[in-house]
Design a protein around this nucleic acid. Structure first.
Length: 473
DNA sequence: CTATGGCACGGATT
DNA sequence: AATCCGTGCCATAG
């Protein structure tokens, strides 16, 4: 049974399809780059700084689901909407297929690790996960892309905790790490120095300069600084010299020569997710709320003025303009298509896997991409692309790859973990097979072994002693 | 002899 | 067409 592909007549159709596909695979970070590139090379495109409900296209005042649309929705269905969003952590944060937050990273000695190590003594255990998350979402310069509130929201941590952890991180070794930019980094470093030399007056000047006249500092406009702060030029120069000698506006690069790719990608840790699933704030038992983050803030559209201008342009120009216009139209259409696909996908996914999302791995019911594809009437490769390299934040704060929803063995693996966790004496693989059979799961003995190794569970022989809670490091 | 891990095959999925 | 996954068979370690 096929769905209608009514665009096959138009010449645009194939290009349209092709481009939609290529956009669909992209994660938000990558998509953002793509969009920015497109905009900068095509005058017909513009971003309007206003949210529009993706389904009814009404302007959306407050962030959140469109009141008009979600009201009409039945209670059980998840509320899915596109969420406007400022920038995402850039950098090569490729989400590899099997990244788990709780997996042992086979990590090289990188900046985040070294910080984590220093932190180890001071940090509260419950802050650890958050610290890891923050460190992994820093950009190449060691700065925070997202404002702290966003972090709090994404990780579902109280704001108070986020500030606490941020404070801790920014004051350890490469000082000024995890601040919002060079300015804050400098200030933090200044604080640290001041603690050691409380009576050094230069520090006071330096702080004032950074605090109030940062851009002038950048421009080396010392005269203005001197005038505005009513400090002698001489002192300004001393202070600037002090800043240069003792502070580093890019904390990440201090320790890592090149600075680039220093922190960035540990494929085992997910960065800012593409999708956020939360409880309904009004009714925690009710429909889940799914936000699909937009890669840019505002909405992309063809500039109406450009369209008008192109229509009435003289021949010499209208050709080039027409091309731009076509391209812009195509691009916008593709974006809509992409959003639409993502939205439908998430609706189905969240609808079917509610238990998995709320109760954990064990509840994942097996699905295939193909089945979803049929349900919404697209080619299975479309779903495949939509799922790949996307990550989603669950209500409990875990960030998992979207592809996890299609992991056929996840539920069984979780059950095995559970069996092993509860065992008093080590079960052999064969016995585990039996136990699983009682839960209506029949798999081969060999497969149990395989899952065990995936989960890092030792063979029964070596499991003699129970070592609870040793899994996490 | 038993419990496991390695290799490889075939079918399902992407 | 390429890849992934469950499984069977067999060698090996205990």
């Amino acid at each position: 049974m096929f769905q209608i592909q009514d665009q096959s007549l138009r010449p645009l159709a194939t290009a349209h399809l092709a481009q939609t596909m290529s956009l669909l695979v992209l994660s938000n970070q990558d998509l953002r780059e793509e969009i920015l590139h497109e905009i900068s090379s095509n005058p017909a495109l513009e971003i309007v700084d206003e949210s529009v409900c993706p389904s009814c296209h009404r302007p959306l005042r407050s962030p959140g689901p469109c009141p008009a649309c979600s009201a009409a929705r039945s209670q059980d269905e998840p509320i899915v909407f596109l969420s406007p969003r400022e920038s995402f952590a850039p950098g090569r944060s490729r989400s590899s297929e099997d990244g788990l937050a709780d997996q042992e990273p086979a990590a090289p000695e990188d900046l985040s690790l070294s910080v984590l190590r220093q932190l180890a003594a001071d940090i509260r255990p419950e802050d650890r996960k958050l610290a890891v998350y923050i460190l992994s979402s820093l950009d190449d310069n060691g700065f925070l892309q997202d404002p702290p509130v966003m972090l709090a929201r994404l990780t579902r941590s109280p704001m108070e905790q986020v500030t606490r952890v941020l404070d801790l991180i920014s004051h350890t070794d490469p000082p000024g790490l995890a601040t919002s930019g060079p300015r804050d980094a400098l200030l933090v470093q200044l604080d640290l120095i001041q603690q050691e030399e409380p009576e050094n007056l230069i520090i006071g000047y330096a702080r004032q300069i950074i605090l109030t006249l940062f851009s002038e500092l950048g421009k080396k406009d010392y005269e203005t600084i001197s005038r505005k702060l009513k400090i002698s030029l001489q002192k300004v120069r001393t202070a600037v010299q002090f800043i240069h000698d003792n502070l580093n506006p890019y904390p990440a690069s201090a320790y890592w020569g090149s600075g680039r790719q220093a922190i960035a990608a540990d494929p085992n840790i997910y960065h800012t997710p593409d999708i956020l699933i939360s409880h309904n704030p009004v009714d925690p038992e009710g429909a889940l709320v799914v936000e699909i983050f937009a890669p840019i803030y505002g909405w992309l559209r063809v500039n109406p003025l450009f369209r008008k201008a192109a229509a009435s342009a003289e021949d010499s120009k209208s050709d080039a303009w027409g091309k731009h216009l076509d391209r812009a139209n195509l691009f916008v259409k593709c974006m809509q298509q992409r959003n639409n696909t993502m939205r439908q996908l998430m609706e189905i996914l969240v609808g079917k896997q509610r238990n998995f999302i709320l109760r954990g791995d064990r509840e994942l019911s097996p699905m295939t991409r193909a089945a979803i594809a049929e349900e919404i009437g697209v080619h299975e490769s479309t779903i495949s692309r939509a799922v790949s390299s996307k990550s989603v934040a669950l209500p409990d704060g875990r960030i998992i790859p979207l592809s996890r929803f299609f992991d056929r063995s996840l539920s069984v693996r979780d059950r095995i973990k559970d069996i092993v966790r509860k065992e008093t004496k080590p079960y052999t693989d064969e016995q585990i097979v039996e136990l699983l059979r009682k839960q209506n799961i029949s798999i081969a003995r060999r497969t149990v072994a395989k899952y065990r190794s995936i989960e890092g569970i030792l063979p029964a022989r070596l499991r003699h002693k129970k070592a609870p809670a040793a899994a996490r490091v």
